[in-house]
Design a binder for these strands. Structure first.
Lengths: 366, 366
DNA sequence: CGATAGACTGCAAACGATTGCAAAAAGCTA
DNA sequence: TAGCTTTTTGCAATCGTTTGCAGTCTATCG
């Protein structure tokens, strides 16, 4: 059905081996025959069969990226970055969704090595350390975003301690003293580290840590909502909430909306990790950006390095950190500042000619 | 490095062929040896090498899903659905991102067939019909969401004419007579069909079509913003905007926010396709739901059918439609109704004990 | 008890590439 | 032109499976 190396060789009246050498460019053929073969190959529309090649070479030109889901915006951009980079190098990305579920992760991992992937970037659940460790002997692996403590795999991490610290300090600088924290599972690197950053900022500012303000766990939007409600129901509720768990964000937003709590006037809100719409939300939501794009790029770099190094890509470095940064938007407010007029960045000229004037678009000042 | 069929055969003191037959269960071996071999295989941790197998059988157990991006929430859920279904059947999903770019699509397609994928679900750009047609001879293909007019591939479509009709009619029923439309490229199925649904609803209601209210094109948030601005700058701007192009939504939201246009009081907004946060947005955004989950499931069904049918899965049906439905939330308003007090669903008991009462959470009524 | 059918099994050839080794061709020196 | 080295080529084995064909074994029957 499809044209094989044999066909090309026949057409060129040379042996298959010569054809192979010419086309893979091993340099063991004369310039002339190489040119000739490349020409004929193109003519015939020859495409090497990666399966056959893979069988012989043990490589598949497949690199897998295993993430928890696609809902998380960070994972989206990571996937896109990884795909773009790999494609440019002639690899196909195998994007797999593990759902942060150890069983599923384990299954997927075995399938992947069965398929003889050439490399793997994985956001580990942390529960399959042993397996990962074994696989790492056969396949270059780089962990992303989370460390798996049971392994000593090379890991590209966001600087969560710093990010959480930055975020918390920002709120403190705005005058907040009671800052609620909603943070991820404490058996994950990021969960622990974000909590520690928060604590450090508090300590530095001489603010006592209040455990009733801290909620840690495996969140979905629903539990995010529950915790938010709990925080607000406190005898002395927080004046700011730092949602350091991505999954919880939607729940928190819903609760504040339902309770008619104006952000940032009555409650400051700071989130971890960006979402495309945070910028368009009203008020635009301030975030700590974990640098997803950089993380992905670095992970690819490291993986490629290991893949090149053929087994001894061991540079001694086990852990890379990508700096976080604070992106101030409109959801955090100076604690004792006067409440400003609501909504909308005041335009310099409130009603220019370019502004709509029909009845449909009255001045929307409330 | 990894245990092969040969190892298993040796351990069992049978030939490789017998081992193969026993483990693949072709039924040509005695019950006893079969059991014995399966046991030994498990013992040794034998896993068949899909590459070697693929070389012989021409199959890879890889099924590709080619979508435009991962930002689009519909594609996210589709990817998750497809992955889940395929995994259950022992296939690996190859998720590829084509960026709605013909060149990239074309490249990806060749890579994929090179890898001898067993099946393909593709959201076509519409510009590579010839190529798709050729590939379809080798690989079962199902188109998703968009039809490629240059082919006669089996296609699973959202019922866009109906969806757009429903949406438009909803706005009309609310009393809107001037309804802006921002819709996708007219060289795509969905672009055309959504426009036609809009037009039909207008005609049915006896409202004249006004071309200045209609913007069609290939959108990114930025151009969505531009068009929104143009609509609002009209001498007689629309009282409602139907954003029937997913990519444009963010831009429209930004512009309305910037211009301080209150939704739904001063402008009703209806969008096509859901996003996870639409529900939490203030106001929650009404949408026409295209049924992404159903679409994906149906596409998988059809693809599996074709893959089973080995070349003659031709049931005569070329096109499947999955119904759209309207999800009313809070972004559309009856045109001549009094403007209600702003924001927040009024709770039945405005300040119950459960409501926070500290200074941090004052009544948020504006 | 010998013939014969039927059930199992093994041999060996694929699948489409890569690659070590040896043979052939070409280039060089004297 | 002979003798040598260096390039270029082809042969054949190999990767780990599957599968057609032929051979071996066991049972069944007359």
């Amino acid at each position: 059905m499809s044209v094989t190396l044999k066909d090309v060789a026949q057409a060129a009246r040379v042996s298959v081996s010569t054809a192979s050498r010419a086309l893979t460019g091993t340099g063991l053929t004369s310039e002339r025959t190489q040119q000739r073969l490349m020409h004929i190959a193109r003519e015939l529309g020859y495409r090497p069969n990666p399966i056959a090649r893979g069988l012989k070479t043990g490589q598949s030109r497949l690199v897998a990226l295993l993430v928890h889901n696609l809902t998380n915006a960070s994972f989206q951009v990571m996937a896109e970055v990884v795909q773009a980079r790999l494609k440019a190098l002639g690899y196909q990305m195998l994007l797999c969704i593990g759902g942060d579920d150890p069983q599923q992760e384990s299954d997927t991992l075995t399938t992947l090595v069965d398929h003889r992937i050439d490399g793997l970037i994985v956001v580990p659940t942390g529960k399959n350390g042993a397996q990962l460790k074994t696989l790492a002997k056969d396949v270059p692996i780089v962990c992303l975003v989370r460390r798996d403590d049971a392994t000593d795999l090379e890991t590209v991490l966001a600087d969560d301690p710093q990010g959480a610290y930055l975020g918390t300090r920002h709120l403190i600088e705005l005058g907040h003293k009671r800052i609620g924290l909603i943070v991820g599972r404490q058996d994950t690197t990021s969960g622990r580290e974000r909590l520690s950053g928060y604590v450090r900022a508090l300590r530095e500012a001489g603010i006592a840590k209040d455990d009733t303000l801290i909620h840690a766990g495996h969140f979905v939007p629903e539990t995010g909502a529950t915790c938010c409600r709990k925080l607000l129901d406190l005898p002395r509720p927080p004046s700011a909430i730092f949602v350091a768990n991505h999954e919880a964000t939607l729940g928190v937003l819903r609760v504040t909306a339902e309770l008619n709590i104006a952000i940032p006037d009555n409650l400051s809100l700071l989130c971890y990790e960006d979402m495309p719409w945070f910028e368009w939300h009203r008020p635009a939501i301030s975030i700590v950006d974990n640098g997803a794009r950089d993380l992905a790029n670095l992970a690819v770099d490291r993986l490629l390095h290991r893949m090149d190094a053929k087994g001894n890509g061991n540079d001694g470095v086990r852990e890379y950190r990508v700096g976080a940064r604070l992106i101030k938007r409109d959801s955090c407010r100076q604690i004792d500042a006067p409440i400003p007029a609501r909504y909308g960045k005041r335009k310099s000229s409130p009603s220019k000619s370019s502004a709509p004037k029909s009845s449909a678009v009255k001045s929307a000042k409330v």
